[in-house]
């Protein structure tokens, strides 16, 4: 069976690399994008099982991109895990309202993140 595909969107190169290394170690097929435009380009030929989405992106932000993906028939059922450095009350509600299926704050715990992703992937779709 081919490994499951994950798209990581983050504008910080080091964080992008960290996520890639971490998820490849778990056996996922990982693609990365540094902003929303690049993400949309990648998505043209890559149908991920999950998107790991930094919410603070230059240009089109992560919330907007999330809404766009959730409005697109092809990606409606792809779970989106939001990653943000803001850790304020209300942020999680905002992210979930935009369509994010999960929410983690930076600094992300590298040891527990794979578990969070696994749980989202294993969630049955309605």
């Amino acid at each position: 069976m081919a490994s499951e595909r994950i798209l990581v969107v983050d504008d910080c190169a080091a964080n992008l690399k960290l996520a890639r290394v971490l998820l490849q170690l778990e056996g996922y097929d990982v693609r990365t994008a540094a902003d929303a435009e690049e993400a949309l380009e990648v998505l043209d030929g890559f149908e991920p099982r999950l998107v790991l989405m930094d919410l603070q992106l230059p240009g089109i932000d992560g919330l907007t991109l999330t809404r766009r993906l959730k409005a697109d028939e092809r990606f409606r059922d792809v779970p989106i895990l939001a990653v943000t450095a803001y850790a304020m009350k209300g942020d999680e509600e905002v992210a979930r309202a935009a369509g994010c299926n999960g929410y983690v704050t930076k600094p992300v715990d590298a040891l527990t993140l794979p578990g969070v992703i696994r749980a989202l992937l294993d969630q049955p779709h309605s």
């Binding site: 910080c12 080091a14 960290l18 971490l22 715990d109 590298a110």
Partner: peptide
């Protein structure tokens, strides 16, 4: 940046 520092160190 702290995210990357902690993450790689954890790895």
């Amino acid at each position: 940046p702290l995210n990357a520092i902690i993450g790689f160190a954890q790895l």
